[in-house]
């Protein structure tokens, strides 16, 4: 049983393309988790039948005015400025709350009630035989990690789990990649791609997750990237050519394994190498 994360650092390098097509090429039972909850797009390509949508919430404080004595201990304890004392009244700023529960622990009068506050939703269903789940952060909400955590809790139900990660290198990516057996880093042969690949490599190194590189939009060797791959010893498992036909298929929301010659074979081979 393998958990494979597909990540990148830089956005738009082809994470979803690789994750979706890899998932479709694996013969065994696969589960797909779209953890790019700020811009989940895998459903466009996999076209799943969604059977359930459930809200995801974080615990957030509400003040019971009858019990609050206005001491302000909660506001002092909150490290995120989500509680503010204004003239003996406590004001809650929900979007800054991380849901740690510290305010409730320090309140001497039991005036703090922790309630679930919706930040997004998780959808589950099937794309053919494939188990599919994706998350969506509500517009205007800041915290994507709780939704990714909810998605990750579903992992492991099938032979293999493919995780489509968000872009970037901060906490949402860490949450998505956590516990994976291998992370495929999709990059492109440009200074931007290389810069962000280097940061992503450090994240995985810090987490102790084995990495591999996939070079997308390959148009012949880009020296600095080749040198980095050699120096770091991280294997390059696949090169996807720069081809306008691929971009056009992507633009229409079509998968490559059924429409681009040789792509299914490339994905099967990629999976064999990841598994080895």
């Amino acid at each position: 049983m393998l958990w494979i994360a597909v990540a990148s650092g830089k956005g738009g390098t082809g994470k979803t393309t690789v994750a979706v097509n890899l998932a479709l090429a694996i013969e065994e039972d696969v589960q797909f988790l779209d953890c790019d909850v700020e811009g989940a797009n895998a459903h466009i390509f996999l076209r799943p039948q969604i059977n359930s949508v459930r809200p995801v919430g974080v615990l957030s404080p509400r003040i019971d005015i009858d019990r609050c004595n206005g001491c302000g201990k909660c506001a002092d304890a909150c490290r995120f400025s989500a509680l503010v004392k204004v003239k003996n009244r406590i004001k809650v700023i929900p979007n800054l709350c991380h849901g740690c529960g510290g305010c409730q622990l320090v309140c001497p009068t039991g005036a703090l009630v922790l309630e679930s506050r919706r930040v997004g939703a998780v959808s589950e269903g099937f794309a053919g035989e494939m188990a599919f789940a994706s998350g969506e952060l509500d517009v205007g909400q800041a915290l994507s990690v709780p939704i990714i955590r909810e998605l990750k809790a579903l992992a492991g139900g099938r032979d293999h789990t493919i995780i489509d990660c968000p872009p970037g290198t901060s906490c949402p990516v860490v949450e998505a990649v956590q516990g994976c057996d291998r992370c495929l880093m999709v990059t492109e042969p440009t200074p931007f791609g290389l810069h962000d690949l280097k940061i992503m490599t450090k994240v995985l190194d810090r987490m102790g997750i084995p990495a591999a590189i996939i070079i997308n939009r390959d148009r012949g060797p880009y020296r600095p990237l080749e040198e980095f791959c050699e120096r770091s010893g991280i294997p390059v498992l696949l090169r996807i050519p720069f081809d306008r036909r691929i971009a056009e298929l992507y633009s229409r929301g079509e998968v490559l394994v059924d429409n681009y010659p040789g792509f299914r074979e490339s994905m099967v081979q990629l999976f064999e190498e990841v598994r080895a």
């Binding site: 700020e38 811009g39 952060l137 915290l143 968000p166 970037g168 901060s170 949402p172 633009s251």
Partner: peptide, 27 residues
């Protein structure tokens, strides 16, 4: 940054104008 979460909210609040770059793909 890309997305709509925490750092995007920090980037957009209090600005006068947001320019949104998109590409002609379903995504």
């Amino acid at each position: 940054p890309p997305g709509t979460g925490c750092p995007v909210i920090s980037s957009i609040t209090g600005t006068d104008l947001a320019i949104i770059v998109t590409e002609p793909t379903v995504s």
